[in-house]
Write a protein that binds this DNA or RNA. Structure first.
Length: 577
DNA sequence: GGAAACGGCGCG
DNA sequence: AAAGCGCGCCGTTTCC
Protein backbone atom coordinates (compact mmCIF):
# COMPACT_ATOMS: atom_id res chain seq x y z
CA UNK A 1 0.00 0.00 0.00
CA UNK A 2 1.45 3.29 -1.05
CA UNK A 3 0.73 6.59 0.57
CA UNK A 4 -1.27 8.58 -1.93
CA UNK A 5 0.66 11.61 -3.09
CA UNK A 6 -0.53 15.07 -2.29
CA UNK A 7 -2.95 16.11 -4.97
CA UNK A 8 -1.38 18.14 -7.73
CA UNK A 9 -4.60 20.07 -8.01
CA UNK A 10 -4.50 21.53 -4.56
CA UNK A 11 -6.64 24.67 -4.53
CA UNK A 12 -4.60 27.79 -4.68
CA UNK A 13 -6.22 31.12 -4.16
CA UNK A 14 -3.83 32.79 -6.55
CA UNK A 15 -1.07 31.69 -8.82
CA UNK A 16 1.37 34.57 -8.88
CA UNK A 17 2.89 35.48 -12.23
CA UNK A 18 6.58 36.26 -12.30
CA UNK A 19 8.28 37.58 -15.42
CA UNK A 20 11.90 36.74 -16.12
CA UNK A 21 13.95 38.87 -18.47
CA UNK A 22 17.31 40.40 -19.13
CA UNK A 23 18.29 43.86 -18.11
CA UNK A 24 21.75 44.61 -19.32
CA UNK A 25 24.03 41.90 -17.94
CA UNK A 26 21.56 40.66 -15.38
CA UNK A 27 18.45 38.53 -15.26
CA UNK A 28 15.73 40.32 -13.33
CA UNK A 29 12.42 38.99 -12.04
CA UNK A 30 9.29 41.12 -11.77
CA UNK A 31 6.10 40.17 -10.00
CA UNK A 32 3.27 40.93 -12.41
CA UNK A 33 0.42 40.87 -9.98
CA UNK A 34 0.66 43.83 -7.68
CA UNK A 35 3.39 46.15 -6.61
CA UNK A 36 5.63 44.97 -9.44
CA UNK A 37 8.24 43.73 -7.01
CA UNK A 38 11.59 43.57 -8.75
CA UNK A 39 14.49 41.39 -7.83
CA UNK A 40 17.86 40.84 -9.39
CA UNK A 41 18.16 37.11 -10.04
CA UNK A 42 21.65 36.43 -11.37
CA UNK A 43 24.22 37.47 -13.94
CA UNK A 44 22.88 36.70 -17.39
CA UNK A 45 25.74 34.27 -17.96
CA UNK A 46 25.23 32.51 -14.62
CA UNK A 47 23.00 29.56 -15.41
CA UNK A 48 23.56 27.97 -12.02
CA UNK A 49 22.60 31.15 -10.18
CA UNK A 50 19.46 31.52 -12.30
CA UNK A 51 18.49 27.91 -11.65
CA UNK A 52 19.08 28.22 -7.92
CA UNK A 53 16.94 31.35 -7.66
CA UNK A 54 14.11 29.88 -9.73
CA UNK A 55 14.22 26.66 -7.75
CA UNK A 56 13.85 28.51 -4.49
CA UNK A 57 11.00 30.65 -5.74
CA UNK A 58 9.29 27.62 -7.28
CA UNK A 59 9.40 25.83 -3.94
CA UNK A 60 7.94 28.87 -2.19
CA UNK A 61 4.78 29.51 -4.19
CA UNK A 62 4.98 27.78 -7.57
CA UNK A 63 4.41 30.89 -9.67
CA UNK A 64 3.51 30.97 -13.32
CA UNK A 65 6.80 31.87 -14.96
CA UNK A 66 6.38 34.40 -17.71
CA UNK A 67 9.18 34.30 -20.23
CA UNK A 68 9.78 35.10 -23.85
CA UNK A 69 10.49 31.63 -25.07
CA UNK A 70 10.59 28.31 -23.22
CA UNK A 71 13.10 26.89 -25.68
CA UNK A 72 15.60 29.58 -24.75
CA UNK A 73 14.98 29.73 -20.95
CA UNK A 74 14.00 26.31 -19.75
CA UNK A 75 16.91 24.13 -20.94
CA UNK A 76 19.22 26.26 -18.79
CA UNK A 77 17.12 25.39 -15.75
CA UNK A 78 16.79 21.73 -16.62
CA UNK A 79 20.53 21.49 -17.04
CA UNK A 80 20.77 22.20 -13.34
CA UNK A 81 17.97 19.83 -12.45
CA UNK A 82 15.33 22.53 -11.92
CA UNK A 83 11.79 22.00 -13.16
CA UNK A 84 8.90 24.43 -13.00
CA UNK A 85 5.23 23.62 -12.80
CA UNK A 86 3.83 26.19 -15.20
CA UNK A 87 4.77 29.02 -17.52
CA UNK A 88 3.50 31.49 -20.09
CA UNK A 89 5.48 31.06 -23.29
CA UNK A 90 4.97 34.48 -24.83
CA UNK A 91 6.29 33.54 -28.22
CA UNK A 92 3.89 30.61 -28.66
CA UNK A 93 1.00 32.58 -27.20
CA UNK A 94 1.72 35.51 -29.45
CA UNK A 95 1.27 33.45 -32.57
CA UNK A 96 -2.07 32.07 -31.44
CA UNK A 97 -3.45 35.36 -30.15
CA UNK A 98 -2.34 37.46 -33.05
CA UNK A 99 -4.06 35.18 -35.54
CA UNK A 100 -7.14 34.75 -33.42
CA UNK A 101 -7.90 38.39 -32.76
CA UNK A 102 -6.95 39.91 -36.06
CA UNK A 103 -8.51 37.32 -38.32
CA UNK A 104 -11.78 37.81 -40.18
CA UNK A 105 -13.05 34.42 -39.16
CA UNK A 106 -16.81 34.07 -39.50
CA UNK A 107 -18.74 32.96 -36.45
CA UNK A 108 -18.91 29.27 -35.71
CA UNK A 109 -21.74 27.46 -33.97
CA UNK A 110 -19.78 27.33 -30.74
CA UNK A 111 -18.67 30.95 -30.73
CA UNK A 112 -19.80 32.86 -27.68
CA UNK A 113 -19.43 36.40 -28.97
CA UNK A 114 -18.98 38.21 -32.26
CA UNK A 115 -15.44 38.69 -33.38
CA UNK A 116 -13.74 41.94 -32.73
CA UNK A 117 -11.85 42.41 -35.96
CA UNK A 118 -9.92 45.50 -34.94
CA UNK A 119 -6.29 44.77 -35.73
CA UNK A 120 -4.13 44.32 -32.68
CA UNK A 121 -0.82 46.02 -32.28
CA UNK A 122 1.61 43.14 -32.28
CA UNK A 123 5.23 43.91 -31.55
CA UNK A 124 7.40 42.49 -34.29
CA UNK A 125 9.82 41.33 -31.64
CA UNK A 126 7.62 38.38 -30.81
CA UNK A 127 6.96 37.26 -34.36
CA UNK A 128 7.62 33.62 -34.51
CA UNK A 129 10.22 33.21 -37.18
CA UNK A 130 12.99 33.86 -37.77
CA UNK A 131 14.37 35.77 -34.86
CA UNK A 132 17.06 38.22 -35.74
CA UNK A 133 18.12 39.16 -32.24
CA UNK A 134 17.76 36.55 -29.53
CA UNK A 135 18.89 38.78 -26.70
CA UNK A 136 16.35 41.46 -27.61
CA UNK A 137 13.63 38.88 -27.27
CA UNK A 138 14.65 38.12 -23.71
CA UNK A 139 14.60 41.79 -22.70
CA UNK A 140 12.63 42.26 -19.49
CA UNK A 141 10.77 45.41 -20.52
CA UNK A 142 9.74 43.80 -23.82
CA UNK A 143 8.63 40.69 -21.98
CA UNK A 144 6.46 42.59 -19.53
CA UNK A 145 4.97 44.75 -22.28
CA UNK A 146 4.18 41.72 -24.40
CA UNK A 147 2.55 39.94 -21.48
CA UNK A 148 0.31 42.92 -20.76
CA UNK A 149 -0.65 43.19 -24.44
CA UNK A 150 -1.48 39.50 -24.45
CA UNK A 151 -3.74 39.81 -21.43
CA UNK A 152 -5.81 42.28 -23.42
CA UNK A 153 -5.77 40.26 -26.61
CA UNK A 154 -6.88 37.16 -24.73
CA UNK A 155 -9.86 38.98 -23.28
CA UNK A 156 -10.90 39.98 -26.79
CA UNK A 157 -10.88 36.44 -28.15
CA UNK A 158 -14.19 35.05 -29.32
CA UNK A 159 -14.31 32.73 -26.36
CA UNK A 160 -11.83 33.99 -23.76
CA UNK A 161 -12.34 30.91 -21.58
CA UNK A 162 -11.37 28.52 -24.32
CA UNK A 163 -8.54 30.78 -25.38
CA UNK A 164 -7.16 30.68 -21.84
CA UNK A 165 -7.24 26.88 -21.97
CA UNK A 166 -5.48 26.83 -25.32
CA UNK A 167 -2.77 29.25 -24.22
CA UNK A 168 -2.16 27.32 -21.02
CA UNK A 169 -2.02 24.01 -22.87
CA UNK A 170 0.36 25.39 -25.47
CA UNK A 171 2.73 26.70 -22.80
CA UNK A 172 2.54 23.45 -20.82
CA UNK A 173 3.44 21.65 -24.03
CA UNK A 174 6.53 23.82 -24.34
CA UNK A 175 7.62 22.68 -20.88
CA UNK A 176 7.02 19.05 -21.81
CA UNK A 177 8.98 19.43 -25.04
CA UNK A 178 12.02 20.82 -23.25
CA UNK A 179 11.80 18.21 -20.50
CA UNK A 180 11.52 15.35 -22.99
CA UNK A 181 14.57 16.57 -24.83
CA UNK A 182 16.49 16.80 -21.57
CA UNK A 183 15.40 13.32 -20.51
CA UNK A 184 15.75 11.67 -23.94
CA UNK A 185 14.23 8.46 -25.20
CA UNK A 186 15.98 5.42 -23.70
CA UNK A 187 17.47 3.85 -26.78
CA UNK A 188 19.18 0.47 -26.92
CA UNK A 189 21.83 0.94 -29.60
CA UNK A 190 22.73 -2.75 -29.55
CA UNK A 191 19.16 -3.77 -30.20
CA UNK A 192 18.95 -1.21 -32.98
CA UNK A 193 22.09 -2.66 -34.54
CA UNK A 194 20.61 -6.17 -34.33
CA UNK A 195 17.41 -5.03 -35.98
CA UNK A 196 19.36 -3.36 -38.77
CA UNK A 197 21.47 -6.44 -39.35
CA UNK A 198 18.37 -8.63 -39.43
CA UNK A 199 16.67 -6.32 -41.93
CA UNK A 200 19.60 -5.35 -44.16
CA UNK A 201 22.16 -8.09 -43.66
CA UNK A 202 25.62 -7.64 -42.24
CA UNK A 203 27.12 -4.20 -42.41
CA UNK A 204 30.11 -3.91 -44.74
CA UNK A 205 32.69 -1.18 -44.83
CA UNK A 206 32.64 0.79 -48.06
CA UNK A 207 29.66 -1.06 -49.50
CA UNK A 208 26.02 -1.87 -49.09
CA UNK A 209 24.88 -4.29 -46.39
CA UNK A 210 24.76 -7.88 -47.63
CA UNK A 211 21.05 -8.33 -48.17
CA UNK A 212 20.73 -4.97 -49.86
CA UNK A 213 23.53 -5.85 -52.19
CA UNK A 214 21.83 -9.12 -53.06
CA UNK A 215 18.53 -7.42 -53.75
CA UNK A 216 20.29 -4.86 -55.95
CA UNK A 217 21.91 -7.66 -57.94
CA UNK A 218 18.53 -9.34 -58.48
CA UNK A 219 17.04 -6.07 -59.68
CA UNK A 220 19.88 -5.46 -62.14
CA UNK A 221 19.59 -9.03 -63.37
CA UNK A 222 15.87 -8.59 -64.00
CA UNK A 223 16.58 -5.30 -65.75
CA UNK A 224 19.25 -6.94 -67.89
CA UNK A 225 21.62 -4.12 -66.99
CA UNK A 226 24.44 -4.88 -64.55
CA UNK A 227 25.09 -1.20 -63.98
CA UNK A 228 21.54 0.09 -63.68
CA UNK A 229 21.11 2.94 -61.23
CA UNK A 230 18.55 2.12 -58.57
CA UNK A 231 18.71 5.34 -56.60
CA UNK A 232 17.88 7.77 -59.37
CA UNK A 233 14.16 7.82 -60.15
CA UNK A 234 14.54 9.10 -63.75
CA UNK A 235 17.17 6.49 -64.64
CA UNK A 236 15.30 3.73 -62.88
CA UNK A 237 12.12 4.72 -64.69
CA UNK A 238 13.84 4.40 -68.07
CA UNK A 239 15.34 1.04 -67.11
CA UNK A 240 11.93 -0.27 -66.03
CA UNK A 241 10.29 0.82 -69.26
CA UNK A 242 13.03 -0.82 -71.28
CA UNK A 243 12.00 -4.20 -69.86
CA UNK A 244 8.30 -3.56 -70.37
CA UNK A 245 7.26 -2.26 -66.96
CA UNK A 246 5.32 0.79 -68.09
CA UNK A 247 5.00 2.83 -64.95
CA UNK A 248 4.69 6.60 -64.65
CA UNK A 249 6.74 6.78 -61.49
CA UNK A 250 8.95 4.50 -59.48
CA UNK A 251 6.85 4.75 -56.34
CA UNK A 252 6.05 1.52 -54.60
CA UNK A 253 2.27 1.77 -54.79
CA UNK A 254 2.53 1.82 -58.58
CA UNK A 255 5.23 -0.82 -58.88
CA UNK A 256 3.11 -3.13 -56.75
CA UNK A 257 0.48 -3.26 -59.47
CA UNK A 258 2.85 -4.84 -61.98
CA UNK A 259 3.68 -8.49 -62.33
CA UNK A 260 7.30 -8.63 -63.40
CA UNK A 261 10.35 -10.34 -61.88
CA UNK A 262 11.93 -6.96 -61.18
CA UNK A 263 9.14 -5.79 -58.92
CA UNK A 264 9.67 -7.92 -55.80
CA UNK A 265 13.42 -7.39 -55.44
CA UNK A 266 13.08 -3.71 -56.30
CA UNK A 267 10.45 -3.14 -53.63
CA UNK A 268 12.67 -4.98 -51.18
CA UNK A 269 15.66 -2.89 -52.21
CA UNK A 270 13.72 0.34 -51.81
CA UNK A 271 12.46 -0.67 -48.39
CA UNK A 272 16.00 -1.45 -47.26
CA UNK A 273 17.50 1.66 -48.84
CA UNK A 274 14.98 3.78 -47.00
CA UNK A 275 15.73 2.16 -43.65
CA UNK A 276 19.47 2.49 -44.17
CA UNK A 277 19.31 6.14 -45.23
CA UNK A 278 16.82 7.30 -42.62
CA UNK A 279 17.62 5.20 -39.54
CA UNK A 280 20.69 3.15 -40.34
CA UNK A 281 24.04 2.95 -38.57
CA UNK A 282 24.81 6.53 -39.51
CA UNK A 283 21.69 7.72 -37.74
CA UNK A 284 22.59 5.66 -34.70
CA UNK A 285 26.05 7.24 -34.51
CA UNK A 286 24.72 10.73 -34.96
CA UNK A 287 21.65 10.68 -32.76
CA UNK A 288 22.05 8.13 -29.98
CA UNK A 289 24.50 8.94 -27.21
CA UNK A 290 24.81 7.33 -23.82
CA UNK A 291 21.66 5.34 -24.37
CA UNK A 292 19.43 8.28 -25.23
CA UNK A 293 17.92 9.69 -28.41
CA UNK A 294 17.27 13.41 -27.85
CA UNK A 295 15.11 14.88 -30.58
CA UNK A 296 14.23 18.56 -30.73
CA UNK A 297 10.47 18.92 -30.44
CA UNK A 298 8.85 22.03 -31.85
CA UNK A 299 5.55 22.72 -30.10
CA UNK A 300 3.04 24.36 -32.40
CA UNK A 301 5.40 23.74 -35.30
CA UNK A 302 2.56 22.65 -37.57
CA UNK A 303 -0.12 25.18 -38.61
CA UNK A 304 -2.81 23.05 -37.03
CA UNK A 305 -1.07 23.16 -33.67
CA UNK A 306 0.52 19.77 -33.88
CA UNK A 307 4.14 19.53 -32.90
CA UNK A 308 6.91 19.28 -35.42
CA UNK A 309 10.43 18.09 -34.79
CA UNK A 310 13.83 18.96 -36.04
CA UNK A 311 16.73 16.59 -36.37
CA UNK A 312 16.76 12.84 -36.21
CA UNK A 313 13.31 12.48 -37.71
CA UNK A 314 11.82 11.93 -34.27
CA UNK A 315 8.27 11.88 -35.56
CA UNK A 316 9.03 9.32 -38.25
CA UNK A 317 10.75 6.55 -36.33
CA UNK A 318 9.69 3.44 -38.24
CA UNK A 319 7.48 1.02 -36.33
CA UNK A 320 10.01 -1.70 -37.06
CA UNK A 321 12.59 0.06 -34.86
CA UNK A 322 10.36 0.84 -31.89
CA UNK A 323 11.79 -2.27 -30.26
CA UNK A 324 15.04 -0.36 -29.80
CA UNK A 325 13.27 1.84 -27.26
CA UNK A 326 14.12 0.02 -24.02
CA UNK A 327 13.71 1.02 -20.44
CA UNK A 328 16.78 1.21 -18.23
CA UNK A 329 17.36 -1.76 -15.94
CA UNK A 330 14.84 -1.61 -13.12
CA UNK A 331 12.65 0.74 -15.15
CA UNK A 332 9.72 0.28 -17.50
CA UNK A 333 8.38 1.99 -20.58
CA UNK A 334 4.66 2.58 -20.36
CA UNK A 335 3.25 3.26 -23.81
CA UNK A 336 -0.21 4.54 -24.60
CA UNK A 337 -2.01 5.60 -27.72
CA UNK A 338 -5.55 6.79 -28.36
CA UNK A 339 -7.75 4.80 -30.66
CA UNK A 340 -9.16 6.92 -33.51
CA UNK A 341 -8.61 10.26 -31.79
CA UNK A 342 -9.64 12.52 -34.67
CA UNK A 343 -13.09 11.10 -35.46
CA UNK A 344 -13.86 11.06 -31.73
CA UNK A 345 -12.94 14.72 -31.48
CA UNK A 346 -15.05 15.45 -34.54
CA UNK A 347 -18.07 13.71 -33.02
CA UNK A 348 -17.70 15.73 -29.82
CA UNK A 349 -17.13 19.07 -31.59
CA UNK A 350 -20.22 18.55 -33.71
CA UNK A 351 -22.21 17.31 -30.72
CA UNK A 352 -23.14 14.43 -33.02
CA UNK A 353 -24.73 11.94 -30.64
CA UNK A 354 -25.13 9.22 -33.23
CA UNK A 355 -21.46 9.38 -34.09
CA UNK A 356 -20.64 9.41 -30.38
CA UNK A 357 -22.69 6.23 -30.00
CA UNK A 358 -20.69 4.64 -32.81
CA UNK A 359 -17.57 5.63 -30.89
CA UNK A 360 -18.80 4.15 -27.62
CA UNK A 361 -16.81 0.92 -27.95
CA UNK A 362 -13.05 0.58 -28.17
CA UNK A 363 -13.20 0.53 -31.97
CA UNK A 364 -15.01 3.43 -33.60
CA UNK A 365 -14.85 1.80 -37.00
CA UNK A 366 -16.78 -1.26 -35.82
CA UNK A 367 -19.29 1.18 -34.38
CA UNK A 368 -19.66 2.80 -37.77
CA UNK A 369 -20.35 -0.62 -39.28
CA UNK A 370 -22.96 -1.24 -36.58
CA UNK A 371 -24.60 2.08 -37.46
CA UNK A 372 -25.40 0.55 -40.83
CA UNK A 373 -23.57 3.16 -42.90
CA UNK A 374 -21.12 0.68 -44.39
CA UNK A 375 -20.65 -3.07 -44.25
CA UNK A 376 -17.02 -3.67 -43.31
CA UNK A 377 -14.48 -2.19 -40.93
CA UNK A 378 -12.18 -1.41 -43.86
CA UNK A 379 -14.96 0.56 -45.53
CA UNK A 380 -15.68 2.39 -42.28
CA UNK A 381 -12.08 3.43 -41.90
CA UNK A 382 -11.83 4.56 -45.50
CA UNK A 383 -15.07 6.53 -45.25
CA UNK A 384 -14.22 8.22 -41.95
CA UNK A 385 -10.73 9.22 -43.07
CA UNK A 386 -12.16 10.30 -46.40
CA UNK A 387 -14.69 12.50 -44.62
CA UNK A 388 -11.99 14.26 -42.62
CA UNK A 389 -9.57 14.62 -45.53
CA UNK A 390 -12.11 15.54 -48.18
CA UNK A 391 -11.95 12.49 -50.44
CA UNK A 392 -13.96 12.81 -53.65
CA UNK A 393 -12.88 9.80 -55.64
CA UNK A 394 -12.15 6.13 -55.33
CA UNK A 395 -13.52 3.96 -52.53
CA UNK A 396 -13.46 6.73 -49.96
CA UNK A 397 -15.16 9.23 -52.24
CA UNK A 398 -17.91 6.71 -52.92
CA UNK A 399 -18.44 5.93 -49.22
CA UNK A 400 -18.40 9.42 -47.71
CA UNK A 401 -21.97 10.29 -48.79
CA UNK A 402 -23.26 7.32 -46.79
CA UNK A 403 -21.71 8.86 -43.70
CA UNK A 404 -23.56 12.07 -44.44
CA UNK A 405 -26.86 10.21 -43.99
CA UNK A 406 -25.89 8.59 -40.72
CA UNK A 407 -23.87 11.35 -39.05
CA UNK A 408 -25.29 14.56 -40.52
CA UNK A 409 -24.09 16.85 -37.74
CA UNK A 410 -20.45 15.72 -37.87
CA UNK A 411 -20.43 15.81 -41.64
CA UNK A 412 -22.00 19.26 -41.75
CA UNK A 413 -19.24 20.58 -39.48
CA UNK A 414 -16.41 19.42 -41.78
CA UNK A 415 -18.35 20.30 -44.92
CA UNK A 416 -18.90 23.82 -43.62
CA UNK A 417 -15.20 24.16 -42.82
CA UNK A 418 -14.42 23.11 -46.38
CA UNK A 419 -16.86 25.64 -47.84
CA UNK A 420 -15.35 28.39 -45.71
CA UNK A 421 -11.88 27.48 -46.94
CA UNK A 422 -12.95 27.36 -50.57
CA UNK A 423 -14.39 30.85 -50.16
CA UNK A 424 -11.11 32.16 -48.79
CA UNK A 425 -12.21 32.35 -45.15
CA UNK A 426 -10.47 31.13 -42.04
CA UNK A 427 -11.68 28.48 -39.61
CA UNK A 428 -11.02 27.78 -35.96
CA UNK A 429 -10.31 24.75 -33.84
CA UNK A 430 -12.40 23.86 -30.81
CA UNK A 431 -10.31 26.00 -28.48
CA UNK A 432 -9.84 28.80 -30.98
CA UNK A 433 -6.67 28.34 -32.96
CA UNK A 434 -7.25 30.10 -36.27
CA UNK A 435 -6.21 28.76 -39.63
CA UNK A 436 -3.93 30.94 -41.78
CA UNK A 437 -5.62 33.28 -44.20
CA UNK A 438 -5.06 32.53 -47.88
CA UNK A 439 -2.03 33.97 -49.61
CA UNK A 440 -2.49 37.10 -51.67
CA UNK A 441 -1.67 35.09 -54.81
CA UNK A 442 -4.53 32.72 -53.98
CA UNK A 443 -7.01 35.59 -53.65
CA UNK A 444 -5.67 37.10 -56.84
CA UNK A 445 -6.21 33.89 -58.76
CA UNK A 446 -9.76 33.51 -57.45
CA UNK A 447 -10.66 37.05 -58.35
CA UNK A 448 -9.14 36.80 -61.82
CA UNK A 449 -11.00 33.55 -62.43
CA UNK A 450 -14.30 35.15 -61.54
CA UNK A 451 -13.88 37.82 -64.22
CA UNK A 452 -15.81 37.66 -67.48
CA UNK A 453 -12.60 37.37 -69.50
CA UNK A 454 -11.28 34.35 -67.60
CA UNK A 455 -10.19 31.43 -69.77
CA UNK A 456 -11.54 27.98 -69.08
CA UNK A 457 -8.09 26.90 -67.98
CA UNK A 458 -7.84 29.74 -65.50
CA UNK A 459 -11.27 28.98 -64.07
CA UNK A 460 -10.40 25.30 -63.73
CA UNK A 461 -7.11 26.11 -62.05
CA UNK A 462 -8.74 28.49 -59.60
CA UNK A 463 -11.41 25.93 -58.84
CA UNK A 464 -8.75 23.32 -58.12
CA UNK A 465 -6.77 25.51 -55.72
CA UNK A 466 -10.02 26.51 -54.02
CA UNK A 467 -10.82 22.83 -53.48
CA UNK A 468 -7.27 22.25 -52.23
CA UNK A 469 -7.80 24.95 -49.65
CA UNK A 470 -11.19 23.54 -48.73
CA UNK A 471 -9.62 20.18 -47.94
CA UNK A 472 -7.04 21.95 -45.82
CA UNK A 473 -9.58 23.88 -43.72
CA UNK A 474 -11.81 20.79 -43.52
CA UNK A 475 -8.96 18.87 -41.97
CA UNK A 476 -7.65 21.83 -39.97
CA UNK A 477 -10.55 21.94 -37.54
CA UNK A 478 -10.28 18.22 -36.82
CA UNK A 479 -6.52 17.79 -36.76
CA UNK A 480 -6.10 21.01 -34.78
CA UNK A 481 -8.78 20.18 -32.22
CA UNK A 482 -7.34 16.70 -31.81
CA UNK A 483 -3.97 18.32 -31.16
CA UNK A 484 -5.65 20.36 -28.42
CA UNK A 485 -7.03 17.25 -26.80
CA UNK A 486 -3.55 15.74 -26.92
CA UNK A 487 -1.99 18.82 -25.36
CA UNK A 488 -4.53 18.75 -22.56
CA UNK A 489 -3.79 15.05 -22.04
CA UNK A 490 -0.06 15.70 -22.01
CA UNK A 491 -0.27 18.67 -19.63
CA UNK A 492 -2.48 16.81 -17.19
CA UNK A 493 -0.36 13.69 -17.34
CA UNK A 494 2.80 15.69 -16.71
CA UNK A 495 1.40 16.99 -13.42
CA UNK A 496 0.14 13.56 -12.38
CA UNK A 497 3.57 12.06 -13.01
CA UNK A 498 5.22 14.77 -10.95
CA UNK A 499 2.84 14.02 -8.11
CA UNK A 500 3.61 10.30 -8.41
CA UNK A 501 7.32 10.90 -8.37
CA UNK A 502 7.08 13.10 -5.30
CA UNK A 503 6.53 10.10 -3.04
CA UNK A 504 9.73 8.49 -4.24
CA UNK A 505 11.87 11.49 -3.44
CA UNK A 506 13.81 9.66 -0.74
CA UNK A 507 14.79 6.64 -2.77
CA UNK A 508 15.46 8.79 -5.81
CA UNK A 509 17.95 10.89 -3.92
CA UNK A 510 20.41 8.01 -4.04
CA UNK A 511 20.28 7.65 -7.82
CA UNK A 512 22.33 9.65 -10.30
CA UNK A 513 21.28 12.04 -13.04
CA UNK A 514 19.01 15.08 -12.98
CA UNK A 515 16.34 14.82 -10.31
CA UNK A 516 13.44 14.94 -12.75
CA UNK A 517 14.85 12.03 -14.74
CA UNK A 518 14.85 9.81 -11.65
CA UNK A 519 11.09 10.02 -11.45
CA UNK A 520 8.43 8.76 -13.83
CA UNK A 521 8.68 11.15 -16.77
CA UNK A 522 7.42 11.62 -20.29
CA UNK A 523 9.94 10.34 -22.80
CA UNK A 524 8.12 10.65 -26.12
CA UNK A 525 5.01 12.17 -27.64
CA UNK A 526 3.67 11.72 -31.15
CA UNK A 527 0.30 13.32 -31.93
CA UNK A 528 -1.82 10.74 -30.12
CA UNK A 529 0.62 8.53 -28.25
CA UNK A 530 3.02 8.87 -25.34
CA UNK A 531 5.86 6.92 -23.80
CA UNK A 532 6.58 7.28 -20.11
CA UNK A 533 9.85 6.04 -18.63
CA UNK A 534 9.32 5.04 -15.04
CA UNK A 535 10.89 3.15 -12.17
CA UNK A 536 9.36 -0.32 -12.21
CA UNK A 537 7.52 0.20 -8.93
CA UNK A 538 5.38 2.96 -10.44
CA UNK A 539 4.53 1.31 -13.75
CA UNK A 540 0.96 0.43 -12.76
CA UNK A 541 0.40 3.86 -11.23
CA UNK A 542 1.69 5.44 -14.41
CA UNK A 543 -0.73 3.40 -16.51
CA UNK A 544 -3.55 4.57 -14.26
CA UNK A 545 -2.37 8.18 -14.48
CA UNK A 546 -2.29 8.02 -18.29
CA UNK A 547 -5.91 6.85 -18.37
CA UNK A 548 -7.00 9.39 -15.79
CA UNK A 549 -5.32 12.17 -17.76
CA UNK A 550 -7.17 11.11 -20.91
CA UNK A 551 -10.49 11.27 -19.04
CA UNK A 552 -9.60 14.71 -17.69
CA UNK A 553 -8.68 15.97 -21.14
CA UNK A 554 -11.99 14.76 -22.54
CA UNK A 555 -13.95 16.53 -19.83
CA UNK A 556 -11.87 19.68 -20.00
CA UNK A 557 -12.60 20.09 -23.69
CA UNK A 558 -16.02 18.57 -24.10
CA UNK A 559 -17.62 18.66 -20.66
CA UNK A 560 -20.33 16.09 -20.19
CA UNK A 561 -20.79 15.29 -23.86
CA UNK A 562 -20.74 11.48 -23.97
CA UNK A 563 -17.54 10.77 -25.82
CA UNK A 564 -14.66 8.72 -24.51
CA UNK A 565 -11.08 8.29 -25.57
CA UNK A 566 -10.07 4.67 -25.15
CA UNK A 567 -6.37 4.02 -24.82
CA UNK A 568 -4.16 1.12 -25.70
CA UNK A 569 -1.76 0.99 -22.75
CA UNK A 570 1.22 -1.34 -22.45
CA UNK A 571 3.89 -1.80 -19.82
CA UNK A 572 6.97 -2.93 -21.67
CA UNK A 573 9.84 -4.91 -20.28
CA UNK A 574 13.26 -3.34 -19.91
CA UNK A 575 16.40 -4.43 -21.71
CA UNK A 576 17.86 -7.74 -20.60
CA UNK A 577 20.92 -7.66 -18.32
C1' DG B 1 29.66 24.78 -56.93
C1' DG B 2 25.82 25.49 -53.67
C1' DA B 3 20.76 26.26 -53.05
C1' DA B 4 16.25 24.89 -54.17
C1' DA B 5 13.11 21.67 -56.13
C1' DC B 6 11.71 17.00 -56.81
C1' DG B 7 10.49 12.14 -56.03
C1' DG B 8 9.93 9.14 -52.67
C1' DC B 9 8.61 7.27 -48.10
C1' DG B 10 8.49 7.07 -43.01
C1' DC B 11 5.15 8.79 -39.17
C1' DG B 12 0.24 10.46 -37.28
C1' DA C 1 0.56 8.63 -60.17
C1' DA C 2 -2.63 9.04 -55.82
C1' DA C 3 -7.54 8.98 -54.64
C1' DG C 4 -7.56 12.21 -49.36
C1' DC C 5 -4.95 16.03 -44.56
C1' DG C 6 -0.46 17.34 -41.83
C1' DC C 7 4.72 16.78 -41.35
C1' DG C 8 10.74 15.81 -41.91
C1' DC C 9 14.44 13.81 -44.19
C1' DC C 10 17.03 11.42 -47.74
C1' DG C 11 19.43 11.16 -52.38
C1' DT C 12 19.17 13.04 -56.82
C1' DT C 13 18.26 16.47 -60.21
C1' DT C 14 17.73 21.07 -61.67
C1' DC C 15 18.53 25.84 -61.40
C1' DC C 16 21.28 29.89 -60.99
Amino acid sequence: MRVHPRSHRGVRALTPSVALGREGDAVVAVSLDEGAVRERVADAADGRGLAAWVSQREARDRPRWVWSDTASWYPRLLEHGVRVERCDDLRLRHRILHHAVTSDAPAHPWDAAPLDAEPAAAPALFEVAPRADESALDDLAATVAEWRAQQELGARAIDPGRMRLLLAAESAGALVAAEMRAAGIPWDARRHDELLTAALGARRAGGLPVRMDEAAAQVREALGDPRASLDSPPKLLRALRSVGVFVDSTSKWELRQHDHPVVAPLLEYKRMARLLAANGWGWLDEWVHEGRFRPVYIPGGVVTGRWASSGGGALQIPRSLREAVRADPGWRIVSADVAQLEPRVLAAMARDERMARAAAGADLYEGVVASGAVSTRAEAKSAVLGAMYGATQGDAGRLVPRLRKVFPDAMELVDAAARTGEDGGVVRTWLGRTSPAPEEAWRQLQSEASGAEASAALVAGARRTARDRGRFTRNFIVQGSAAEWSLAWLADLRLRLTALGAVSEGEAAAASGPAFARRPHLAFFLHDEVLVHTPEAYAEDVATAIRAAADSAGRLLFGEFPIDFPLDVHIERSAAK
